[in-house]
Structures are given as C-alpha cells and as structure tokens.
Amino acid sequence: MRQIGWNWLGVLPFFAFALLFLVLPTMNIVIGAFQNPQGEFTLANLAGLASPRIVSSFAISIKISLASALLGCLIGFAMAAAVVMGGVPGWIKGPLMTFSGVASNFAGVPLAFAFIATLGRVGLVTMLLRQWFGINIYAMGFNLLSFWGLTLTYLFFQIPLMILIITPALEGLKREWREAAEVLGASTFQYWRMVALPILFPSLLGTFALLFANSFGAVATAYALTGSSLSIVPIMLFAQIRGDVLQDPHLGYAMAFGMIVVTGLANLAYVVMRARAERWMQ
C-alpha cells in the first residue's frame, strides 16, 4: 500500500500542473456555460447561442474550416502522392518534409503579414497580376480579408500538416496490394476505388477532422489579418474576453464551450479513424 502511495507521488507534480493550468480552467468555462450569473444551473446560455450573430459566426467559422481542411487535404494529398508514388526524383521528399514541418508551425501573426505583403491591395502578386496580365483581382471581388482570403491563408499551414500526416499512410500502401489487384484483373482506377482509397479512407477522414479543428481554433492569423472585420468564432470570443461585447459573460462561456465541442468532436473523429487505420495496416 505504501509502495503504491510512493509511486503516485512521482506523478503528482504533473497532475497538479495539468489540473491547475489545463483541466480546472477548462472545466470552469464549461461549468460557467451552464450557470446563470447567480450560479444556478441553466441551459439559457446555450439557448442564447442561437442568436443570429453567434450562429452566423459559427457558420462562417465552420465554412472556412471546412474549405481550408478540404482544400488542404486535396492539395496536400496530391503533393504527398506525387512524392511517394509519382515517379519524381527521391531527393525531393526530404526537403518537402522538412519544409512541411516548418510551415505547419508557421501560423500566427507573421503568416498574416506575409499574405498581406503578397495578396494585399499592394502585395507582390496583386501588383504583378495587374502589371503583367492586366488582371485586377480586387476589382474582380477578391478580398484578402474575406472568406476566400482567410481560407487561402490558412492553407499555408493546412497543406503541410496534411503532407506530414498522409505521407506515412501512403508509404504504408504495400506494393503487393497493387500487384495482387492488377493480376486479378483490376485497372489502375479499379485499384484506387476498390483497394487504395478505402484503405486510406480512415487516414484521410481523420486528417480532415484534424485540419478542421486546426483552423477552427486559429486566432492569431485571423486577428492579425482581419482585425475584427470578419466575425469568426475565435475572433468574436477574443473580443468578448477583452471587452464583453456580447454584454453577457455567461454567453461568452457558452461560446467557448461551443468551440470545445466542435474541436473536441473533430479530434475524436481523428483518434477513432487513426485507430481503425492502424488496425488495417498491421
């Protein structure tokens, strides 16, 4: 018995830290979401999320996250597939993976600056398109501080994350599966439809969920890019924490709780899908 006590003492600092600076603060918000100012239990805060302003912020956030996750998956998959099975020289893989490791961590304020300098009103690409091809993208309705602008910016860390996760999965496709399918009469298309894509499906879906959560929780990039002109969830929450713009602190907790639910579900999907993919790959 004393032995068990001793053993637990070794992990006490960790649990104390996690409790104080991770679990309790989060629980506090979650509980606050279900309390009224008098501290009584209520569902009114969650009901309050149905206000048009909050619903539309969740809608645009989810839309941006879906778009950047989907495009990130497609482009990242194409690039990873090109390197793994596309017949390009082998030395490309190393630099691509290194670059992906860096770029997937290059979110935040500097990323916003980089895109303003590139696709802003006087950015390099904007100017070059106008000077060389006479295309004025801003006159055509493009705006960096918009849905597409934000999506395009998020892709800078979404695509590399996809490459980092999906490359090992693609390398896990055994050559024999392809050969077995071929010798059984399958065309390349049939092989992909009946074997490769179903095998990759859990990895793809899981990574999609992870990318979704990744962009849903991104604050700094969006804030530095748009200020508060685009009311996506994290930015609205940011403003709420700073200045109680919703004029109801508990509605703020409910909003934060909503964020946890969305990212939590997405991450849960990722974990479940990864477990499934691993079972197949063994």
Binding site: E176, E179, A180, V183, L184, W280
Partner: peptide, 27 residues
C-alpha cells in the same frame, strides 16, 4: 498483368485489409 488471366499468391499474403475474406476471394 490485368489482361493475362493469371492467378498469383504472394509471400506476404497481400490480402486487401479493407475487404472481408469473401470480398477478397470475389475480387
């Protein structure tokens, strides 16, 4: 290979992990 009507068995089995036994045999 897919035009030769050949059957092949590999050292590593190479069964399709996403398909059941029956679906593998029926592939």
């Amino acid at each position: 290979p897919n035009q030769r009507q050949i059957g092949m068995v590999f050292q590593s089995y190479a069964l399709f992990p996403n398909l059941t036994v029956a679906e593998n045999v029926g592939f």
